[in-house]
Amino acid sequence: MTELSIQNGDPRKVWARLGDVPAALYLLVILFVGLSVASPYFLTQANLINIVLQASVVLIISLGMTLIIITEGIDLSLGPVLSFAGVVFGAALVAGWSFPVAMIAGIVAAMLIGGLNGYLIAYHDLQPFIVTLGTFGLAMSFAMSISGGESISGLPSGVQWFNDGHILGLPFPIWATAALFLLTHILLKHTRFGRYVYAIGGNRKALQLAGVRVNLWQTSIYVYAAALAGFASFIMTARTNAAHPTVGMGLEFDAIAAAVLGGASFSGGKGTLFGAAAGALAVATLRNGLNLMNVAAEWQSAAVGVVIIAAVAGDAIRGRT
């Protein structure tokens, strides 16, 4: 961290600062420049907004995921939590609840799962991986049984504003993502919550000895991550104008990949919000680029795999020299 504050001027030191730049940012820059040259559709306002919109859901989830990874945890349940919150939100709206109440219901549903995660992980000292694998199933079952296994549609038309609504020329999800990024950043850097996030990852015992109610704080991290996923579900619901019980499938892995591309590490509890955001944007840009360049679906998965590995490998090789 201290290396980051080296004064500018000496190019070597600037490079040293660049050394802290996550793989995701290099990938993002390379993709951006490359795709601008390679595809006439890429560098247009519509497409760039498109990419940010597409990245927004994963980006929001990856913020919470990064906090959890810093505590040396993981949360596999966030994808189904998103589905669950979306279904509760949708069902509440269809039942005629008002907007704010339906939103609160959705977020509370998400937070309940997050709370269960945190409770089992913090108070019972169970492995985050297995706990959240369990709640993964639980959240999915809740989502399916509430929705009856089908998309909940017929939502009030206002819902789509969460996707289409514009403020100062930019769509709502972009503002929401930026706001949540800032909020999480402030929480992490300027509050007790943030200090404890780092401390739980670094030295949980010491924190406990200092009389901090570590279990409670650790639980709150999982609750916060779930709440973010709950919020992301509104954007997801708005995009499809329906709440589907499995729409969040696989998003947890995308979010983890974004965080790791952004430099997060499971051992040692490292991770930055900025990196995770860059990771989410890089993957969205990559997928967008593959579509714009007409790459056949069967090659797309392979390309995504190769690029993710190459980006992290490049980073690893660079880190050694």
């Binding site: 490079w15 420049v33 790459v295 056949a296």
Partner: peptide, 26 residues
Amino acid sequence: KYSKFIKAVAVGMALITATGSLPGAA
């Protein structure tokens, strides 16, 4: 080292352009 970075970008661009030749029906 900057030239290294530029090189990385160039290689990336070349790869991306190459990706365009991956099969897609036409």
